[in-house]
Design a protein around this nucleic acid. Sequence first.
DNA 1: TCGACAGGCAAGTGAATACTTGCCTATTGT
DNA 2: ACAATAGGCAAGTATTCACTTGCCTGTCGA
Lengths: 100, 100
Amino acid sequence: MADDLFKALADATRRTILDELAERSGQTLFEICARLSTRHGLGISRQAVSQHLTVLEAAGLVETRREGRCKFHDLNTAPLRRITERWPAPPVPNPEDSTR
Amino acid sequence: MADDLFKALADATRRTILDELAERSGQTLFEICARLSTRHGLGISRQAVSQHLTVLEAAGLVETRREGRCKFHDLNTAPLRRITERWPAPPVPNPEDSTR
DNA sequence: TCGACAGGCAAGTGAATACTTGCCTATTGT
DNA sequence: ACAATAGGCAAGTATTCACTTGCCTGTCGA
């Protein structure tokens, strides 16, 4: 459902994680933790970040690939398209278009 | 903040209200209530809808105009642009671009 | 093989929030 | 003037959800 997508975007920490992945793709859980702490001043436990990543993955916004004991996370912005598609911009009310 | 926008979109009922306003602009509170009930099968109180509209207005997704005792609600999709602007689509990995 | 590293699972807690109920204000028509 | 209509305010409740704590699994290097 679209519910997963919007629920995922509803949390500020998750949006910051998306920002991080947009800037540097393919980070591991620990890398994300470290960068949230140092660059964004977020004091947050590893498990909390892990749970956020689960939610983001359920929404299709994050894709993961495993290599050995490491799990890399990549951003996928495709689901965001559905938002602007659902509520498209209104047809431009052309001022010339005083038809009738 | 962007927080208002995403919080507003997080609720399924509010998204349905946006759908309704996208289809027919300028509805009053009671109109929205009636159409949520008949067309979407949502049994929800008037006050609940009113609270949702307050949230949507705070997010800038709904704009209102008063005329006498009636208050008309209009959809504004502009804030949605900021979402796709924040996480733009990645540069297309051109297959020809085996530079090196 | 053993310890360190990367991550997962699950229960518990506290805060945010969707919804209801009850009452109040303002405008309109008769 | 009065009733009906359109909407607002505020407190209470119940659910959702973010986060923590504690423990477990799997992989890599020495």
